[in-house]
Design a protein around this nucleic acid. Structure first.
Lengths: 204, 204
DNA sequence: ATCGGATTTGAAGGACGATTCAAATACGTC
DNA sequence: GACGTATTTGAATCGTCCTTCAAATCCGAT
């Protein structure tokens, strides 16, 4: 039994607990008791804060997506060179390994989105935001003359996000030859041809 | 009650029923009764043929993947021009619309593969086969001088399948602007730059 | 036409999860 | 330090799903 907490604090805890439970049992497979156990509470206590489990699950997914996106933004925040930005951004969209919690949580929703409107909107919104992110990098790179784009920046940005997504699935499914490094290289190969930039991996 | 059938026939029926049930309720959300209802039988009858529901679900997914792949092979089978083959193959990897049963079934597994080894192997195998399919088209196109590949054909093939996968998810999630036509065009834009071929959509 | 095995039903039992709620407990506040 | 309220527990209830199995039914073989 984790010690008593304020309403706001407990809700944050529960969202975290739900996130872990989802990773363990899947969005469809989570039960109230799983969440309660992850939170160190009783099912009654969970219900006290979230009378409807599905709402808690949505919040957990929403929070997970937000965290994922914010982390990506943060990773490029210090950089100024568009080429470097692009390389780092590609990396930050891929899972670190097959068990990467951020990407695994997102992958949970792929199938559910076809049946659940809320999840569909969440995923679609995330996709669009990521496209905008890439597009901004591409456009400034083109404006500075660092990139020579072979086509519309929206098209390139959409494809870059799509590639990330797909390789995220392959990596979490433990493809024997496509790991994070290989996936990054595959995406970079695309990025190089459409930007006309060597896009060297940073030398550190 | 659907009329009595032989063991082999009934098992085929049940796999079909399971496929429909999965599409309705999700791989995790299917219950024995859902499958029974889809098959027009009792839960006991289903259990008589498949004592373990999860095995039936695996078979349903396996059959669905096989059907999906075979359909793609069949669609290009008549064509000889590599450019035409490539265009048709890209199309056949995308869902016809948000409710396309073939792609929706595949998407169900994305999240599950991270938790379930069997599904991970199924998906990985399918991915590799599709890559081989594209690679063969690209290689013969290059040999015939129709394509001038900008890089290794494996790399291009992997990226093509990855793009298909990702846009399949976007389409089934009902992205407001990315439909089958738009997705095809996005993938073609990539295919054009890496093959140096215009890849016109066939004029029929 | 009947026999025999294969298939299916339907009901009963048991396990599990969601939900409710009174009682207990801990915390902030005065 | 006591009070009042917010939080949590634990047990009881209800419904759902899985599983089992004897009985019924159907089909093919003889």
């Amino acid at each position: 039994m984790s010690s008593r907490k304020s309403r706001a604090d407990r809700r944050v805890d529960l969202i975290e607990a739900a996130r872990r439970a989802i990773l363990r049992y899947g969005t469809q497979g989570v039960h109230l008791n799983h969440v309660a156990e992850e939170a160190g509470l009783t099912s009654g206590a969970v219900l006290y804060h979230y009378p409807d489990l599905s709402e808690l699950l949505v919040e957990a997914h929403h929070a997970g997506m937000e965290r994922f996106y914010e982390l990506r933004v943060k990773r490029v925040s210090g950089l100024s060179d568009p080429a470097q930005k692009l390389v780092v951004t590609i990396r930050s969209g891929l899972p670190v390994g097959p068990d990467d919690p951020g990407v695994r949580l997102l992958n949970e929703l792929g199938g559910a989105a076809a049946r659940n409107r809320v999840y569909a909107v969440l995923l679609t919104t995330l996709y669009d935001r990521q496209v905008a992110m890439y597009q901004s990098i591409l456009d400034t790179g083109a404006a500075l003359g660092v990139f020579t784009l072979t086509g519309d920046s929206v098209v390139i940005a959409r494809n870059l996000v799509a590639l990330e997504d797909a390789y995220g699935y392959r990596i979490t499914a433990r493809h024997p030859v496509i790991g994070p490094d290989q996936a990054a290289e595959l995406i970079l190969s695309y990025a190089r041809t459409v930007t006309g930039n060597m896009l060297e991996a940073p030398v550190n």
